[in-house]
Design a protein around this nucleic acid. Structure first.
Length: 504
RNA sequence: GGGCCGUUAGCUCAGUUGGCAGAGCAUCGGACUUUUAAUCCGAGGGUCGCAGGUUCGAUUCCUGCACGGCCCA
């Protein structure tokens, strides 16, 4: 055994209580264990109610014995009695401990509890003079000891970095944060119910893929030891879900995590949740109706109607949503007329004239310039729900061409609150055209576009077996949660957003 | 990748034009049996993100780094 300087074995017995809160509680824990009161020995606790039930059904249980369990989040001592607030998943309830109810010994044990401890309490339900619903503590158990102190009771935990790194503290200290995640859960549940009601089958497809595809993004790579092969984390489930449609599953959907190896900001996390749905014998217009129905149902569940406020903007999701073709929207919001322009050079000149920085689009393709123009001039304006339609075929390698305009695709992206929330199209089911599109992507990749699709031979082979005309829809769940929970930062709707290690 | 900002007690935040570092909550001791951001009296608690530099002296000024935030790309 080694001692630090100044340490002396004889001192231990006379050493005063450690000053540090953690050390203090650790010492208390070991004392409890020595006394045969190990707080971590409990395997369960029988509750008669959760706290919210006591609050809402007080009259029914007043004067009766109830039992609740939760975390001590506030303590107000009065000498011979103590009030504590007990928090569980449903809310809080006050507990009142009195020496003449508990007896000296049990009361002393109650006094010994710390803020943050998890206890079970049994006793009579009553209201105090000030009408507070309260459980009179007649029996209690310490169910888990908190060794670390809670954040400040009034402001909660504010430090964003700590909130994300230690989300558990954020959740237990900040009720608004819990609400956001409850909203998130409800949104996913509603989406699932809505699709299942309409005859969609929920499926799961591979996250680890020998070849990635279905979106323009760089993948994460990983390695399978036994197979001795590189694998990719999926960037989208699209190509597998379409394989299922080819297999005869006419309506399928998947809600799952996808992974894109890109930078992190207020709107991007390397892993996020996507909902994709595919419906055979339907086109992109059917997907518009599906989008309106889905997002409307989510909003209904969260806000009780089709209107809500996002960052100060009143938004109305009543269908039908506005529709406007991409090039028309660009013309309307930036003044740049691109219809009829085939060469990138002319488009670049016009874009620069409209206000885009020349360096950012220098040497870029027409599709890229269209993207940039839409990003800069169109998307921020799309506060009310809007379908931007008719994307050029060059930037839509998996979408079917429009019959009357083969350089455009039967595709749309829905926007709400200035945010892109999804992507949908009539799926390309011509295997020969699909091969050509993939080949154009491979050429783009060779020219330096790292987000271009690789050629997926097995997917083309699947198409060669025949895929019915199919409409497909992808929706970014995280973005929708941001909108419906009125949060401007994606990290507020993801429990554990990716951060650099703090080094501690 | 670039710009700006932040990092001070367990938490929320002040502050130091360069000279022994502050409050509230939390903690500890005392009083208080219907309080609820309880109240009252008293006390302890700091590597001022990290590493250099300038200086008699740096938490403060300078440089670099780390992590985070916001904006731009």
């Amino acid at each position: 055994m080694t001692w630090g300087k100044g340490d002396h074995p004889a001192k231990e017995a006379t050493m005063s209580e450690p000053r540090d809160e953690y050390q203090r509680r650790l010492a208390k824990l070991s004392r409890l264990k020595r006394q045969g009161q190990d707080p971590f020995s409990h395997h369960s606790y029988r509750r008669s109610h959760v706290t919210a039930q006591l609050q809402s059904n007080f009259a029914e249980w007043a004067g009766q014995q109830v039992s609740v369990a939760g975390r001590i989040v506030a303590v107000r001592g009065h000498g011979k009695s103590i009030f504590v607030d007990l928090q569980d998943a449903s809310g809080t309830v006050q507990v009142y401990a009195q020496v003449d109810v508990l007896g000296e010994e049990e009361y002393a044990r109650f006094q010994d509890l710390d803020l943050g401890d998890i206890i079970g309490v049994q006793g009579e339900l009553f209201r105090t003079r000030s009408e507070e619903v309260t459980v009179r503590c007649e029996q209690f158990e310490l169910l888990a000891k908190a060794l670390r102190p809670l954040p400040e009771k009034f402001h909660g935990l504010q430090d964003q970095e700590l909130r994300y790194r230690q989300r558990y503290v954020d959740l237990l200290a900040n009720a608004e944060v819990r609400k956001i995640f409850e909203t998130r859960s409800r949104i996913v549940q509603v989406a699932r119910d809505h699709l299942i009601e309409q005859g969609f089958l929920e499926v799961e497809t591979p996250v680890l893929q020998p070849l990635y595809g279905g979106a323009a993004a760089r993948p994460f790579t990983t390695y399978h030891n036994a197979l001795e092969m590189q694998l990719y984390m999926r960037i989208a489930p699209e190509l597998y879900l379409k394989r299922l449609v080819i297999g005869g599953l006419e309506r399928v959907f998947e809600i799952g995590r996808v992974f894109r190896n890109e930078s992190i900001d207020t709107r991007h996390n390397p892993e996020f949740t996507i909902l994709e749905a595919y419906q055979a014998y339907a086109d992109y217009e059917a997907m518009m109706a599906l989008t309106e129905g889905l997002v409307g149902a989510m909003c209904q569940a969260v806000h009780g109607g089709l209107q809500f406020t996002y960052q100060g903007n009143e938004i109305d999701l009543t269908p039908p949503w506005r529709r406007i073709a991409l090039l028309d929207a660009i013309e309307q919001y930036s003044g740049v007329t691109l219809s009829g322009i085939a060469d990138a050079q002319t488009a670049r000149e016009q874009a620069v004239a409209a206000g885009l920085q020349a360096e950012t689009i220098e040497g870029q393709s027409l599709g890229y310039i269209i993207d940039k123009l839409a990003d800069r001039f169109v998307e921020p304006e799309l506060v009310q729900p809007t379908f931007i339609t008719d994307y050029p075929v060059q930037i839509s390698p998996l979408a079917k061409r429009k019959a009357d305009a083969p350089e455009l695709t039967a595709r749309f992206e829905p926007f709400i609150g200035g945010e892109e929330i999804g992507n949908a199209f009539s799926e390309l089911n011509d295997p020969l055209d699909q091969r050509e599109r993939f080949e154009a992507q491979v050429a783009a990749r060779a020219a330096g576009d790292e987000e271009a699709h690789p050629l997926d031979e097995d997917f083309i082979r699947a198409l060669e077996y025949g895929m019915p005309p199919t409409g497909g829809l992808g929706i970014g769940i995280d973005r929708l949660v941001m909108l419906l929970a009125d949060q401007p930062n994606l990290r507020e709707v993801i429990f554990f957003p990716l951060l650099r290690p703090s080094g501690q």
